[in-house]
Computed example of a mutant assay.
Amino acid sequence: MALEYAMQGLFSVKSDVFNFGVLLLEMISGRKNNGFHLQEHGESLLTLAWKLWSEGRSLELTDPSIKESCHAVQVVKCIHIGLLCIQEDPIDRPTMSPVVHMLGADTTPLTRPSLPAFSVRRNVRTLNPIGLIHKTSTVNEVTLSDVSPR
Protein backbone atom coordinates (compact mmCIF):
# COMPACT_ATOMS: atom_id res chain seq x y z
CA MET A 1 0.00 0.00 0.00
CA ALA A 2 1.39 3.38 -0.98
CA LEU A 3 2.64 5.48 1.94
CA GLU A 4 0.45 8.48 1.15
CA TYR A 5 -2.65 6.28 1.15
CA ALA A 6 -1.72 4.39 4.31
CA MET A 7 -0.86 7.52 6.29
CA GLN A 8 -3.19 10.19 4.90
CA GLY A 9 -5.84 8.38 2.86
CA LEU A 10 -4.65 10.11 -0.32
CA PHE A 11 -5.00 8.07 -3.50
CA SER A 12 -3.74 8.94 -6.99
CA VAL A 13 -2.38 7.33 -10.13
CA LYS A 14 0.99 7.30 -8.36
CA SER A 15 -0.55 5.00 -5.72
CA ASP A 16 -1.29 2.53 -8.52
CA VAL A 17 2.33 2.83 -9.67
CA PHE A 18 3.49 1.98 -6.15
CA ASN A 19 1.24 -1.10 -6.13
CA PHE A 20 2.53 -2.14 -9.55
CA GLY A 21 6.11 -1.89 -8.29
CA VAL A 22 5.30 -4.12 -5.32
CA LEU A 23 3.59 -6.61 -7.64
CA LEU A 24 6.60 -6.62 -9.97
CA LEU A 25 8.97 -7.37 -7.08
CA GLU A 26 6.62 -10.08 -5.78
CA MET A 27 6.53 -11.78 -9.19
CA ILE A 28 10.32 -11.75 -9.52
CA SER A 29 10.95 -13.00 -5.99
CA GLY A 30 8.06 -15.46 -5.81
CA ARG A 31 7.23 -14.04 -2.36
CA LYS A 32 4.41 -11.86 -1.08
CA ASN A 33 5.25 -8.50 0.45
CA ASN A 34 2.35 -8.91 2.88
CA GLY A 35 3.76 -10.62 5.95
CA PHE A 36 7.19 -11.13 4.36
CA HIS A 37 10.12 -11.20 6.71
CA LEU A 38 13.49 -12.86 6.92
CA GLN A 39 13.95 -14.87 10.08
CA GLU A 40 17.26 -13.31 11.07
CA HIS A 41 16.93 -9.74 9.77
CA GLY A 42 13.26 -8.74 9.89
CA GLU A 43 13.43 -7.04 6.47
CA SER A 44 10.44 -6.43 4.23
CA LEU A 45 10.48 -7.59 0.62
CA LEU A 46 10.90 -3.96 -0.47
CA THR A 47 13.85 -3.41 1.85
CA LEU A 48 15.47 -6.67 0.73
CA ALA A 49 15.05 -5.72 -2.94
CA TRP A 50 16.63 -2.31 -2.29
CA LYS A 51 19.50 -3.79 -0.28
CA LEU A 52 20.35 -6.42 -2.89
CA TRP A 53 20.03 -3.94 -5.77
CA SER A 54 22.19 -1.29 -4.09
CA GLU A 55 24.86 -3.92 -3.35
CA GLY A 56 24.82 -5.15 -6.98
CA ARG A 57 23.31 -8.50 -5.98
CA SER A 58 19.82 -8.08 -7.50
CA LEU A 59 19.71 -11.58 -8.93
CA GLU A 60 19.65 -13.05 -5.41
CA LEU A 61 16.05 -11.80 -5.18
CA THR A 62 14.98 -14.04 -8.07
CA ASP A 63 12.66 -16.95 -7.34
CA PRO A 64 14.78 -20.13 -7.61
CA SER A 65 12.11 -21.79 -9.76
CA ILE A 66 12.65 -19.24 -12.57
CA LYS A 67 16.32 -18.42 -12.04
CA GLU A 68 17.62 -20.83 -14.69
CA SER A 69 15.11 -19.88 -17.39
CA CYS A 70 15.16 -16.09 -17.13
CA HIS A 71 17.46 -13.50 -18.65
CA ALA A 72 19.57 -11.94 -15.90
CA VAL A 73 19.70 -8.50 -17.54
CA GLN A 74 15.89 -8.39 -17.82
CA VAL A 75 15.44 -9.46 -14.19
CA VAL A 76 17.81 -6.75 -12.93
CA LYS A 77 15.99 -4.22 -15.13
CA CYS A 78 12.59 -5.26 -13.72
CA ILE A 79 13.89 -5.00 -10.16
CA HIS A 80 15.26 -1.53 -10.96
CA ILE A 81 11.89 -0.45 -12.42
CA GLY A 82 10.07 -1.95 -9.42
CA LEU A 83 12.26 0.12 -7.10
CA LEU A 84 11.51 3.27 -9.10
CA CYS A 85 7.79 2.55 -8.67
CA ILE A 86 7.95 2.18 -4.88
CA GLN A 87 9.63 5.48 -4.09
CA GLU A 88 8.39 7.10 -0.88
CA ASP A 89 7.48 10.43 -2.46
CA PRO A 90 4.87 10.08 -5.24
CA ILE A 91 6.61 12.85 -7.18
CA ASP A 92 9.67 10.59 -7.51
CA ARG A 93 7.62 7.73 -8.99
CA PRO A 94 7.09 7.51 -12.75
CA THR A 95 3.58 7.26 -14.18
CA MET A 96 2.52 4.01 -15.82
CA SER A 97 3.18 5.21 -19.36
CA PRO A 98 6.94 5.62 -18.77
CA VAL A 99 6.95 2.36 -16.78
CA VAL A 100 5.50 0.49 -19.76
CA HIS A 101 8.05 2.18 -22.02
CA MET A 102 10.92 1.26 -19.68
CA LEU A 103 9.78 -2.36 -19.57
CA GLY A 104 9.56 -2.58 -23.37
CA ALA A 105 12.64 -0.62 -24.44
CA ASP A 106 16.22 -1.73 -23.98
CA THR A 107 17.77 1.68 -24.58
CA THR A 108 15.85 3.78 -22.06
CA PRO A 109 18.21 4.99 -19.32
CA LEU A 110 16.85 4.34 -15.83
CA THR A 111 17.31 6.85 -13.03
CA ARG A 112 18.73 5.75 -9.70
CA PRO A 113 16.03 5.03 -7.12
CA SER A 114 16.37 6.04 -3.50
CA LEU A 115 15.52 4.00 -0.42
CA PRO A 116 11.92 2.80 -0.85
CA ALA A 117 8.95 3.61 1.33
CA PHE A 118 8.13 1.30 4.22
CA SER A 119 11.72 0.24 4.70
CA VAL A 120 11.19 -0.19 8.42
CA ARG A 121 12.57 -3.36 9.96
CA ARG A 122 10.24 -5.60 11.93
CA ASN A 123 11.06 -7.23 15.21
CA VAL A 124 10.71 -10.85 14.07
CA ARG A 125 11.05 -12.20 17.60
CA THR A 126 7.52 -10.95 18.28
CA LEU A 127 5.97 -12.99 15.46
CA ASN A 128 4.68 -16.47 16.03
CA PRO A 129 5.82 -19.20 13.59
CA ILE A 130 2.90 -18.73 11.20
CA GLY A 131 3.00 -14.95 11.47
CA LEU A 132 -0.68 -14.50 12.30
CA ILE A 133 -0.49 -13.41 15.93
CA HIS A 134 1.77 -10.63 17.20
CA LYS A 135 2.72 -10.85 20.86
CA THR A 136 4.31 -8.15 22.94
CA SER A 137 5.32 -8.50 26.57
CA THR A 138 4.99 -5.47 28.79
CA VAL A 139 6.90 -4.67 31.95
CA ASN A 140 4.33 -6.48 34.10
CA GLU A 141 4.56 -9.63 31.92
CA VAL A 142 1.06 -9.18 30.44
CA THR A 143 0.84 -10.48 26.88
CA LEU A 144 -1.32 -8.80 24.25
CA SER A 145 -2.33 -10.64 21.09
CA ASP A 146 -3.55 -9.15 17.82
CA VAL A 147 -4.98 -11.58 15.30
CA SER A 148 -4.21 -10.47 11.75
CA PRO A 149 -6.63 -11.48 8.98
CA ARG A 150 -5.38 -13.39 5.98
Rank of each mutant, 00 (worst) to 15 (best):
I81Q: 01
T143G: 00
L45W: 07
P94H: 04
T108P: 00
Q39N: 14
R31Y: 15
P129K: 13
G56V: 12
S15G: 10
G131Y: 03
E68C: 10
T108M: 12
L3P: 13
V22H: 01
T111P: 00
A49N: 08
L83G: 08
T138C: 07
H41Q: 15
L59T: 14
R31H: 15
S44Y: 08
Q39I: 14
E26F: 01
S15H: 11
L24E: 06
S119T: 13
D106F: 01
S12M: 13
L45Y: 06
L46D: 01
N128A: 08
S145V: 12
P98D: 04
V13C: 09
L46C: 04
D92I: 04
V124Q: 06
D146R: 09
T111V: 08
L144Q: 07
S137C: 14
A72G: 04
L52F: 09
L52V: 13
N33C: 10
V17C: 03
V13Q: 15
I130H: 13
S97G: 05
T126N: 10
C85S: 05
A2S: 15
V147T: 06
S54P: 00
F18C: 01
S58D: 09
H101S: 13
S12P: 10
E40I: 09
L46G: 05
S29I: 07
V75F: 00
S137Y: 09
W53D: 02
I66N: 09
R121G: 02
M7G: 05
N33I: 08
L25E: 03
A105I: 05
V100D: 11
V124N: 06
Q39H: 15
A72T: 11
C70T: 15
P116H: 07
T138L: 11
V76C: 05
M96S: 06
T143H: 02
V139T: 14
I133V: 15
G21F: 03
L61A: 02
L132A: 07
L46S: 08
P116T: 12
V13H: 14
E55W: 05
L103M: 08
G131F: 02
E141I: 10
P113K: 02
D106Q: 12
W50S: 03
R31W: 13
E4D: 09
G42H: 11
D16T: 07
E40H: 12
V142Y: 07
I133N: 08
H37P: 00
I79W: 00
S12N: 14
D16V: 06
R125T: 14
D89M: 11
R57W: 04
